[in-house]
Amino acid sequence: MSEEVVFDTEGVRKNFMFLNRKAPYGTIYALEILEMILISAAFEQNTTVAFMDDGVYQIKKGQNTKALGMKNFSPMYGVVEMEKEDAEEDEDVEMVWRIVVEQESMEARGLSPEDLVLDVEVLPAAEFGALMAQQDVILGG
């Protein structure tokens, strides 16, 4: 009388937000979160990559770290954009990727979407907060 135990993990899809709030080179947060995003992309979850506060500086155009002897990782966000495009094109998988920036943080830093390496949705604080409230998991600071 043994019943087969079936673990149905197919189609488990949660809403994950990666919340970037720190500038890129002063601390390790930005790079760690970016690596986390790229690794977890394999799990095909609904993914929101979000930037607020000094996190907006992570995706500022024109970064050059040569003299610092550190890796300029801003080109790596291109892979995030690629994952988003793949998610949109892949008809077999119902998965949503979004890249969002909180408007107030961006404007407070004198930046506009043209200053950013990514094509982003700019959301006012209230919408940004509402999106946070919809998440199952928020990773980052």
């Binding site: 394999a42 291109g78 892979v79 793949d86």
Partner: peptide
């Protein structure tokens, strides 16, 4: 050269 990172295998296959 473009992304400053080596792709994981699933990303490589897709690309």
């Amino acid at each position: 050269n473009e992304y400053q990172i080596a792709p994981a295998v699933r990303v490589l296959v897709k690309a």
